[in-house]
Design a protein around this nucleic acid. Structure first.
Lengths: 197, 197
DNA sequence: ACAGAATCTAGTCACTGACTAGATGGTGCT
DNA sequence: AGCACCATCTAGTCAGTGACTAGATTCTGT
């Protein structure tokens, strides 16, 4: 614990402590079970302390989503090509289920928050970059939506326990790789490299 | 209003009235904004009346999800082949966003509710039936997960306003049809109408 | 007609989010 | 060194909520 056992009036890292505790609660019981008072209790501060960092419940969730988009952008940035980007997307959802959940429930968030928008845009740029080099497909934009839909759908079904049966004991990422093999398959002559936009 | 203006002690159709009101609230503000007391107010009954139909909040949401799976099974049953089943899936999400949302948030539901499980199984069977006739693909099970992921992902991104830009003013269903063209591509004989079993 | 079941009312409890005023202590300015 | 500022935190309050209880009213089958 990095708890600074100082005078104990100022907590020191309350903001991050509350965010981290929130992740645990959400991963275990969903965003609906979030209670600012409970989080305050866990951090050992009074019930109104978190309000200074996140104005209200929505503010807390918006901060979480912002953090999530940042992590996603970071995860995607390192990937070399489209399929690997998809795999990273799925991995992100598996490793950060609470972030993922909150990011895609807009009614929980302050949609016009500037930090949120900026982080979202960074992640979005990474997604677009993934299909930029795609030449085997007529319309890159549509192909991007298809790839995103496939990855997002699989990730969502995974987190909601809707594919555990089909998965067996296989690794989700590996399974997803086999799914990507069914997208854009054998459609155009594979050597068509010429771009025409 | 089908309100039977009888003695006004018994509401008559309280169960369905509460379910319908809940759909409005969820579609507008998400499941988190649901309040049994508010629903009771809307129906003009005391704050504890809904508890007799749905034991608690979770019970209400479970009933909604059950209704949703029933509607989905119904919608899918009529579709002739896989691509059309996907389109119906997306259409279901667009036409019943509240149901769709609740169905895929397991932490809101009583997962072991027998009615829910039965309805889910009926919808699941329809999904499986969609890929049963797929012979152009090596592993029908995996192909089914791919198709489901694509449809589910697109539907989710649609409802969370993440593809409105790419969509422009095109009809979502029509756009989704073009996405399906990228899965298992170029291998479906367009006139394959032959049914088996 | 009547008994029992289903449906609804009314009251209560602990808990929550949002809000307020004020205490505390660190920071930078002079 | 002194001092004013300000972010952080405490403490108290309010209306609204879910869950629970006991009891009233109406419907149903016999």
């Amino acid at each position: 614990m990095t708890r600074t056992s100082r005078s104990s009036y100022h907590h020191g890292g309350l903001r991050q402590a509350v965010l981290d505790a929130a992740l645990d609660v959400i991963a275990a019981e969903g965003p609906g079970a979030l209670s600012l008072r409970d989080l305050a209790r866990r951090a050992g501060v009074s019930h109104a302390a978190p309000a200074h960092h996140f104005k209200d419940r929505t503010g807390l969730l918006t901060a979480l989503a912002t953090e999530g988009y940042g992590l996603l952008a970071e995860a995607l940035a390192a990937a070399p090509e489209l399929r690997e980007r998809g795999v990273r997307y799925v991995r992100f959802a598996v490793e950060h289920p609470a972030h993922f959940q909150v990011m895609f429930q807009p009614e929980l968030l302050r949609a016009d928050d500037p930090d949120l928008l900026a982080a979202k845009e960074r992640a979005s740029a990474e997604l677009r970059a993934g299909v930029a080099g795609l030449t085997e497909v007529p319309d890159a934009r549509t192909a991007g939506i298809a790839a995103w839909s496939l990855a997002h759908g699989f990730a969502t079904l995974l987190l909601t326990h809707n594919v555990t049966g089909a998965l067996g004991d296989r690794d989700p990422e590996e399974y997803f790789r086999s799914l990507t093999g069914l997208l854009f398959t054998g459609q155009l002559p594979p050597e068509q490299e010429g771009k025409r936009e």
